[in-house]
Computed example of a mutant assay.
Amino acid sequence: MHCSYFAAAQCRSCTLMGQPYAEQLAGKQRHADLALGRPEGLQWLPPVASPESGFRNKAKLVVGGDAHEPTLGILDADGRGVDLRLCGLYTPGLRAAFPVLAEFVARAAIAPYSVPQRTGELKYLLVTESPDGELMLRLVLRSQESVARIRKHLPWLRSALPRLAVVSVNLHPEHKATVEGEREIVLTEQQTLRMRLGGVDLHLRPQSFFQTNTGVAAALYRQAAAWVAEKSPASVWDLYCGVGGFALHVAEPEREVVGIETSVEAVASARLSAEEAGLGRVTFEAGDATAFALAAERVPDLVVVNPPRRGLGEDLSRWLEESSARHVVYSSCHAGSLARDLALMPSLRPRQAQVLDMFPQTAHYEVLTLLERA
């Protein structure tokens, strides 16, 4: 894949840009194999490849420039906006929306936030596209100063982008290196973006997390569901469940499934999906995964874990090691933290694993591992 932004040194986020894709994928497989220490008895399934371009379903666009000619992309070293709206990683649907969103910013006269001067209002545009082509737009603002103008011009925006389903404002008043604040104001009647994957409808609320590569995410859930079906557990926990992707994909009429997630927004989304699907034995609770496990009176037959980059940590890893759970399906976005956790769970042996290339053109990837108690 060729990228003019990378070639011109305007953006170097894609550290593997220019490397043949087959080499990228083989390198990730080697890295995962070495990181896990090549344990005896581990079978690697063929890695899941991604399209080299057009795969990102979510755009996190820093807004720069001025209200008349905003830039959508990143900031340079001096805090000036660098426009990246033609970035080839985004889906065609997202790329088609960017010029309309830039015009909307100008129409509503929303001043981009200046990091060096700490003035202005609009920090980010966060745009997500569903598998059906619907869009969710979030405007991250410093204050409510421009909300009335956004509401005024919203009918024009929805006319220009007919697939725009959800629009919200996120208030982030602090000057911090974080993307969003705590308060969200939804401006549309529809409050969730429907993400249809493998026959399962997931609902995405504005502050919920979802994988950025829809096709590879579908493959991730399919493989996890296949392993769970093979082991046929009567009960499953999905820890760090997000909007319920794993839990809903492994649900069966006679199987008890419990999902745990700290985000109240994500739990509300997961509950809505379970209710719509008529899954009465699938429940979701808001809480800390480690605290939930340590306080539980019963242990499930199988545990699915999908922790953040830092991994499970010592407490939850040791709980899993000492528990009676027969199997663990571990989805990891960092092979190093996965290896550290595995070292704390010696009786849970890796039997099968698969690299899934969620992030082409970068060194990042997902690795899914089936653990079985020795």
Rank of each mutant, 00 (worst) to 15 (best):
P162Y: 10
I185N: 04
D201F: 10
H203R: 06
E182A: 15
L154G: 11
M195H: 12
L202V: 05
H172N: 14
H153F: 14
L141T: 07
V166P: 03
L171C: 05
V200W: 04
N170S: 04
K176W: 00
G198I: 02
S159Y: 05
S146M: 04
L164N: 01
L204R: 03
L171A: 06
G198P: 01
K176V: 15
D201G: 01
L141K: 06
W156S: 09
N170H: 04
E182V: 11
T192I: 02
L171T: 09
R196T: 13
L187Q: 09
P155I: 11
V179F: 12
R183E: 15
L187V: 07
L161N: 05
E134A: 11
I185H: 09
V169K: 00
G199S: 09
E182P: 02
D201S: 15
L187P: 07
M136I: 04
E184I: 08
L197G: 02
A165V: 06
L193G: 04
A177Y: 02
L161K: 12
H153P: 01
L139N: 04
P173G: 06
M195C: 10
L204N: 04
L193F: 04
E182T: 12
Q191P: 02
E180I: 14
L164F: 02
T192H: 11
R158T: 08
S159C: 09
L204P: 00
V169Q: 03
I185Y: 01
P173F: 06
M195I: 15
P162H: 11
E180M: 12
R142W: 01
L135V: 11
L171P: 00
P173N: 08
L204T: 04
V166A: 04
R138C: 13
V200K: 07
L139G: 07
E145V: 14
T192V: 13
A177F: 05
G198E: 03
K176H: 09
E182L: 08
L137G: 09
L202K: 05
R183H: 11
L193Y: 06
L171V: 11
V169P: 01
S146W: 01
V166D: 02
S168P: 02
V147C: 07
L164Y: 07
K152A: 14
R196P: 09
L161P: 01
I185F: 03
R196W: 05
A160F: 03
V140S: 04
I185L: 15
R142K: 15
L141R: 06
E145L: 13
T192Q: 14
R158C: 06
E184G: 05
L187G: 07
M195G: 01
V169C: 14
R149N: 10
S146R: 10
L137P: 09
A148M: 04
L161D: 07
L135H: 10
L171Y: 13
L161Y: 03
R138S: 15
I150T: 10
